[in-house]
């Protein structure tokens, strides 16, 4: 049985997903204001690292990194509804790419496991 990351398609799948995902996030009025003024190239790099992790791939994230990385956004009002909006965009991205539902469920479970750290709970 190959890993989730292999079944999804590895790094090429991350490269294919990142633009679609980030475009959805930037176009989403519920969350786009958190991305005002951020450098797009740096942000795409971060999104790729996040997607790699969510796809079950190799990563070096710790819960502490997630907390520190989002603390300034929590201070600006980041809450559960924003987290859910990002998750929804991720799920829609994978559907759009034709990823099988059982794989999407696994990705969403990994993404969901970061919830408390992202929101500083």
């Amino acid at each position: 049985m190959s890993s989730l990351y292999e079944q999804i398609g590895g790094q090429p799948a991350v490269d294919a997903a990142v633009d679609i995902f980030y475009r959805k996030v930037l176009s989403d009025d519920r969350i786009s204001h958190f991305f005002e003024g951020v450098d797009m190239d740096k942000q795409i790099g971060k999104q790729k690292a996040f997607l790699t992790m969510a796809f079950g791939g190799p990563h070096n994230y710790t819960g502490q990194d997630m907390r520190k990385g989002h603390a300034h956004l929590v201070a600006r009002g980041l809450n559960g509804t924003h987290f859910d909006a990002v998750a929804e965009n991720l799920s829609n991205t994978l559907t759009e790419l034709g990823v099988a539902q059982n794989l999407i469920d696994q990705v969403m479970a990994i993404a969901g496991s970061t919830r408390n750290d992202v929101l500083g709970l």
């Binding site: 790094q11 790099g45 790729k48 690292a49 791939g57 070096n60």
Partner: peptide, 10 residues
């Protein structure tokens, strides 16, 4: 360095 997975480019 950061992600160590060929993604973040740092």
């Amino acid at each position: 360095n950061s992600c160590r997975a060929g993604a973040c480019q740092s």
